[in-house]
């Protein structure tokens, strides 16, 4: 019983990490049609920036604030100078381009921080355990769960209730018409790409105390994040949330109870969804691939 509860919490926490990654990835695809293969690199860069900020300031909270900003700036450079000139050429050029950047960012990371494994320390405030219903839970993981819910609500409010969010939705539905009615689509694209990168970096910082921080952690999350948006649907926030939780739980329980088969089954699910519902479970028909 205890084990199942712990696994559930771990699954949900992994789901939260995936959500932070997938929501950005999904919006970037929905709005710009860009399959961003450098998204895992933003996650990794976020974790490493967090590492340095913690070393400098001694505070996890500063890392949480500064690392996403730093990574967003990198993303802005990539979007404005490299992606933007290729939009007219079709979607595949951007796949190749971001694939190239994933190599560059990995090399950059190794040059700055080396190839060792690091870990981030949990903030002191959260570095303890709490007892709920007679079971012991690490507080940091519980807090992360709450943080994930908070971010999901903020994102939802932003997308559904603000003017900027309405522009994003308009862009996802039909970028041409959105441009036709006078939205500044290039700015919207840059902002979305940067925000997605910032969310990925945020995921990297909060994952720091849970996962190993090393050059190569980007690949480990990139493919699960893609599975999430394929299952949930490109361009759909709700899809990212549901997909993340499903994959987070499936992966955690799968690894615990059938370690040989879990990876296989998850890819199988991805294939089935791609074939049966190419726009995912919650995706908009127009935002399908």
């Amino acid at each position: 019983m205890d084990l199942i509860l712990t696994q559930t919490l771990n699954g949900l926490v992994y789901g939260v990490l995936l959500f932070l990654l997938a929501s950005g990835l999904s919006l970037i695809f929905g709005l710009m049609g860009v399959v961003n293969l450098a998204h895992g690199s933003f996650f990794m860069l976020g974790a490493f920036c967090g590492l340095s900020v913690i070393k400098l300031t001694g505070s996890f909270w500063w890392a949480l604030l500064l690392a996403p900003i730093a990574v967003a700036m990198v993303a802005i450079v990539i979007e404005v100078f490299f992606l933007r000139p290729t939009y007219a050429r079709g979607k595949l050029d951007q796949v190749l381009l971001t694939f190239g950047f994933s190599f560059i960012l990995t090399d950059l990371t190794e040059s700055i921080w080396g190839r060792e494994m690091f870990g981030l320390d949990e903030p002191d405030l959260l570095d303890r355990s709490v007892e709920i219903f007679g079971s012991i839970f690490p507080l940091y993981r519980l807090a992360l769960l709450g943080f994930g819910i908070f971010i999901a609500i903020v994102l939802w409010l932003f997308i559904e209730k603000t003017r900027a969010g309405a522009m994003v939705r308009a862009g996802v539905d039909d970028a041409h018409t959105a441009m036709g009615i006078g939205l500044n689509v290039p700015l919207l694209l840059t902002a979305t790409f940067a925000s997605g990168a910032a969310l990925a970096a945020l995921a990297g910082v909060v994952a720091g105390p849970l996962l190993n921080v090393f050059s190569g952690m980007d690949v480990e999350v990139l493919i699960p994040a893609f599975i999430v948006i394929v299952i949930g649907g490109m361009g759909s926030l709700k899809g990212s949330l549901v997909g993340s939780l499903v994959i987070g739980m499936a992966d955690t329980f799968g690894k615990a109870y059938m370690p040989e088969l879990s990876m296989f089954l998850i890819y199988l699910a991805m294939i089935v969804i791609l074939l049966v519902r190419p726009h995912g479970l919650f995706g908009h028909q127009s935002a399908s691939m």
């Binding site: 979607k91 893609f226 394929v230 990876m263 296989f264 890819y267 199988l268 294939i271 791609l274 691939m289």
Partner: peptide, 22 residues
Amino acid sequence: GVAFLMLTLAFAQLIFSVGVKW
């Protein structure tokens, strides 16, 4: 296009997962 790319990736990963786990 992109759907083809994702589907080929998924199939290859499926086979890769067998290679790694078996």
